[in-house]
């Protein structure tokens, strides 16, 4: 027997995931046009792998396959994995990463809605630890022809000296560590555009536009992107003002690497993130802080993925300690706070 309410808003997981994919399109377009068209191949490869892995795991777990495969959640994971990776990684690396994301990070924990860690970030972190060389070969924006990119993806000889340049974050790191040069001196290099990595600025702008779409359609709330951007700006700005020769500006941090992708699409993953309004602020700000620390002092050029996983661990505690006030109760009154 069906009980009240007898009416439902026309909403579905499929619609939520579909809108996330749609919101990624501007960023992907800029990526393909300005940086590397090879990303399109990787996206397709990742999507197919994800759907196959999803169907396989559902079959093994004896769960209804059709409804879960069509909810598009696997494709969102696949796209985020592909977008985090260099666009010229060999095909098997993309596939391996997606399998890790779908099988290990998602289904071994119980499937959609049950995973404590962001699957795309689990894939990224495990691959950058396992294949650091492949994971740091980024082509300079627009430097490789599509044929060359396709060849590299399909396993062609990787004689990459002269083909790949360092990413903006990478160049800044090595530049700063190699000696006396200041941030400004490093930023004169060919890898840099107006704010961040050349070409990448447009991708970041595309992600920003897609993120605004997600905000407008209430798929995400303002808390996480705002806290992430504000915290990253605040911490980098403070150190930049303190010593501009050794620390990059907030604008550089925001426009470089995966900052915009993270702010609107990765940090905001509802399943593995904090859920209360105050919790979301703490969660996103924590990721920004860890990301900046790793970018500035750590062993890896980009630290967002590690920040996400570390903050994922804190989610139960954050949620518990930031429960909002219930109607008619005083803030932080009896119960719920043990």
């Amino acid at each position: 027997m069906i009980h009240s309410p007898y009416i439902r808003k026309p909403a579905s997981v499929q619609r939520v995931m579909g809108l996330v994919l749609l919101a990624l399109v501007p960023g992907i377009t800029a990526y393909a046009l300005k940086v590397s068209a090879g990303i399109l191949v990787n996206l397709a490869l990742a999507s197919l792998t994800a759907v196959a892995a999803e169907a396989l795991m559902l079959a093994l777990r004896k769960r209804p396959i059709a409804i879960a495969v069509t909810d598009l959640s696997a494709i969102v994971t696949a796209w985020l994995v592909a977008l985090c990776f260099p666009p010229i990684v060999p095909w098997w690396l993309t596939m391996l990463a997606v399998l890790v994301a779908i099988i290990v990070a998602k289904h071994l924990y119980g499937g959609l809605g049950q995973n404590p860690f962001n699957p795309a970030m689990v894939a990224y972190c495990s691959m950058i630890v396992a294949y650091p060389a492949l994971m740091s070969q980024w082509p300079a924006a627009g430097s490789l022809s599509f044929d060359t990119q396709l060849g590299l993806i399909l396993g062609g000889a990787r004689d990459l000296d002269g083909m790949t340049g360092a990413t903006a974050l990478d160049a800044l790191r090595t530049g700063l560590r190699s000696g006396a040069s200041s941030v400004e001196a490093v930023l004169q290099g060919s890898a840099f555009g107006f704010f961040g990595g050349r070409g990448w600025e447009w991708v970041s702008l595309g992600y920003l536009g897609g993120g605004l779409l997600l905000l407008a359609t209430r798929i995400i709330t303002w808390h996480m992107p705002a806290a992430f951007i504000a915290a990253l700006s605040l911490i980098s700005g403070t150190f930049w003002l303190f010593d501009p020769t050794r620390f990059a500006s907030p604008l550089f941090h925001l426009a470089s690497g995966g900052a915009m992708l993270a702010a609107f699409f990765i940090v905001t993953d509802p399943v593995s993130g904090a859920t209360t309004p105050r919790g979301k602020l703490i969660f996103a700000a924590g990721i920004a802080l860890i990301a900046w620390l790793i970018r500035s002092f750590g062993a890896y050029p980009e630290g967002i993925a590690f920040g996400v996983l570390l903050m994922n661990i804190c989610v139960p505690l954050i949620d518990k300690k930031t429960q909002p006030r219930v109607f008619g109760h005083r803030r932080r009154d009896e119960g719920g706070w043990r």
Partner: peptide, 20 residues
Amino acid sequence: PEQPCIRCGECARACPAELQ
């Protein structure tokens, strides 16, 4: 048909009793 909860928080935003 019922699908898994994705913790999107829509319910918490709609709840007049301000519950989760």
